[in-house]
């Protein structure tokens, strides 16, 4: 057993598929009871990494640990420590919500009385209790995902993996699911490890890593990562823009430009800078707005590409995806 503070840890993890490197020298550490976001475009190696961590794939080299257990040598203990919501639903559509959870309880060896209580508690937590005796095939996409999250939590896992949990959901279901996910570390004492390529979802994570072509290209809190692109932009309109600009240039150390009737103040901490501007200009100010950098800006800066746009790399990604599909069946 490998003792440490991190609940998830990888050491130089590598996974090759027929000469294609899907995961490239990955080093990760995730603290207990946090939400960790794994962000990257399709085919970046996110699902492959999850599959290694949840013992469905063997790494080509390197090691991975969950809850102190080696994902290869101690696969059985790792499996007891984790819950997983895969990208594609893995519910039995012919069984009811309740039966799906009961099946899971038996599979993980829960005691009968306990599993009954746990099922009811989780169905209520996920707002599915009213529909518990309906076959899953009648559930909407959002309900199925919530049921899968409930199922993943049944056996008190230490880590809950969510692979693109909101993929294919409408905005309302997405919001509904998120509301539940962000509460999990507190309510169910679990570490959430999730992949996504939605920027706004990544922003609620405690920490995150950006992955591209199987390599981690940046890691930190969402705030830290956004600071990498050089801070916020404050947009300002004053009674006399020209004069205001000159005054600000003397008093604030920042890039200041004027364009289209607006003054841009680049690369500042917006929450500190706005009060400062107002103090300096006083009644001169007509309007102020703040633009914070998004994680998309971060990705753009690091790779020169938009995270969700098609790019020359798409072919590469698609080939990795198809390999992955073939090997995922393990």
């Amino acid at each position: 057993m490998y003792r440490m503070a991190s609940i998830i840890k990888t050491e130089s993890l590598v996974k090759d598929f027929d000469g294609l490197r899907a995961v490239d020298n990955l080093n990760l550490e995730v603290e207990e009871r946090t939400i960790f976001g794994f962000l990257g475009p399709n085919g970046a190696g996110k699902t492959t990494t999850i599959n290694i961590l949840c013992t469905l794939l063997r790494p080509t080299s390197g090691r991975a640990f969950i809850n102190g257990y080696d994902c290869v040598k101690d696969a059985h203990r790792v499996r007891s420590s984790i819950g997983i919501v895969f990208q594609d639903t893995t519910l039995d559509k012919d069984l009811t919500a309740y039966e799906n959870l009961l099946f899971h309880a038996y599979l993980y060896g829960l005691k009968r009385e306990e599993s009954k209580k746990r099922i009811e508690e989780l169905l209520q937590f996920m707002d599915l209790y009213d529909r518990k005796d309906e076959p899953v095939k009648r559930f909407s996409g959002g309900m199925k995902r919530r049921l899968e999250v409930a199922r993943g939590l049944m056996h008190y896992p230490k880590v809950l993996f969510l692979d693109e949990p909101t993929l294919g959901l409408d905005p309302q279901s997405r919001a509904g699911l998120w509301e539940h996910i962000v509460r999990l570390p507190e309510s169910h004492n679990v570490t959430v490890f999730m992949t996504t390529h939605y920027m706004d979802e990544a922003e609620v994570c405690n920490r995150m890593a950006i992955i591209d072509h199987g390599r981690i290209i940046a890691e930190g809190t969402p705030e830290e990562l956004k600071r990498m692109v050089g801070g916020d932009v404050v947009y300002l309109r004053a009674k006399d823009n020209k004069m205001a600009k000159e005054i600000l240039k003397e008093r604030i150390i920042a890039d200041i430009e004027e364009r289209n009737g607006e003054i841009f103040v680049h690369g500042v901490k917006g929450d500190v800078c706005i009060p400062e501007i107002i103090r300096i200009l006083g009644e001169q100010v007509l309007s102020v707005r703040l633009q914070r950098p998004t994680l998309n800006d971060v990705f753009l800066k690091l790779t020169g590409r938009q995270i969700r746009e098609g790019s020359p790399e798409d072919e590469f990604k698609e080939s990795i995806r198809s390999y992955r599909r073939r090997f995922d069946r393990t």
Binding site: I84, T90, L91, L107
Partner: peptide, 13 residues
Amino acid sequence: KEFGFLKEILVAP
């Protein structure tokens, strides 16, 4: 396999 349920069984201890 096709409908994914097998994965639920395979990741169980």
